[in-house]
Design a protein around this nucleic acid. Structure first.
Lengths: 211, 211
DNA sequence: AGAATAGTGTCTCTCAGACATTATTTG
DNA sequence: CAAATAATGTCTGAGAGACACTATTCT
């Protein structure tokens, strides 16, 4: 075990210009999911937060551990254990990326090592899955948002169109957001702004296969 | 990182005498979730399988990674990263446990270190959760089983009673099991034996919070 | 015959999903 | 007033959940 390294990788998601994007770091030829080595007295989650602090100017609004991989010795002869996380970044809280990394649309990724590709694809699956039974989608939006913005968030991540009336009915029934007195003005009729209720029940039971 | 150890723990579940049980190993004062160090050229899952081979006389029918913990230096001054798994063992395939460990009913556990308690409670939560949206329950049963046995499996793990007619209707509708020609004879009317269909769709979509 | 377990059908109520028009603002 | 986006209600069909009796075997 003498040459084993312990690494933490974080898949960072944001919404930008109607797309879901991930942050990748450059290497000599291709790109990587950002990673760093765990240092002496630090927990895994602290390592992930430290890595994020070097990449972004704001803390993520959500951070969750995904999976732990064993990367067998490559050219270097170094074996490594890689604990992966994914992070969600609210809109308008992304900077610092220039120089240390670049945002890529999740459906138009550059060349990546196979393990990075695997990590990304699993992260996206978990994000989609989590979105369906929990309120994690709010973590990608600013504090106040319109119902249309929220619906677009869901459509972008799930990759399908949703019916406006059904969407509104269900999200309001869920009592998970509350009105504010503010409005967002733009091209058409101004939209009412909503806010996530921090006391909301953020998870529902999945429908059982056979109860 | 010089004194960091990489460990794999496995929470082993079985059904026995109408209870859900886990395998624990003895230490000087209390009990532990079985664990071992990852050795040089071995993957994490191989380590878990090797650990299971020292504890049981059969391979598990299911093995899934759960979570990775960082155990900060204890008395020993050794920090350790612990990758946890859970394993399901089919009924009637459990032995070797004497000497190396003991089976405990999940609701009547002995004294355990806090980290082991945390690992166990998370494993149980994940098992329950997985049971609700996938066909993982079959992994705890022998190859052929009656519908009553299957229903009891679900009742034991979920900790609640289920309606017999609804249970049968739904499991048969799901087309996830098939009849065999065999019957199980016992005290009352003999029951038809069923078998899990290996080609069955083993997961369903969760109901969405708000599609 | 009695005890024990297997096996079966119906009704109700909730909720997902499809669908089109009116309302309010800006330029 | 035209363009743009916000906001709103109804109907239908599927499925979850509650519920009680008959069938078959063994002793």
């Amino acid at each position: 075990m003498s040459t084993l390294r312990l690494l933490v990788s974080v898949v960072v998601f944001r919404l930008h210009e109607e797309t879901l994007q991930v942050l990748l770091c450059p290497s000599l030829q291709d790109w990587f999911v950002p990673l760093t080595e765990v240092s002496a007295s630090e927990s895994l989650e602290e390592t992930a937060q430290r890595l994020l602090a070097t990449l972004l100017d704001k803390r993520p609004s959500y951070l969750e551990q995904l999976y732990t991989y064993y990367d067998s010795p490559e050219k270097t002869g170094q074996a490594a254990v890689r604990v992966t996380y994914y992070a969600l970044i609210p809109v308008q809280a992304n900077a610092r990326a220039e120089g240390v990394g670049r945002w890529y649309i999740v459906h138009a990724l550059p060349d990546l090592p196979p393990r990075c590709r695997e990590v990304l694809s699993y992260a996206l699956r978990r994000l989609r899955y989590k979105l369906e039974y929990s309120a994690v989608g709010f973590q990608l939006l600013p504090e106040e948002f319109t119902l249309s913005e929220l619906q677009h968030t869901y459509e972008i991540i799930l990759g399908e169109r949703l019916d406006k009336r059904n969407f509104r009915r269900r999200i309001l029934q869920a009592e998970i957001i509350e009105e504010t007195t503010h409005r967002r003005c733009g091209e058409g009729r101004p939209a009412r702004l909503y806010r996530y209720r921090p006391d909301a029940v953020a998870e529902i039971k999945a429908r059982r296969l056979f109860p």
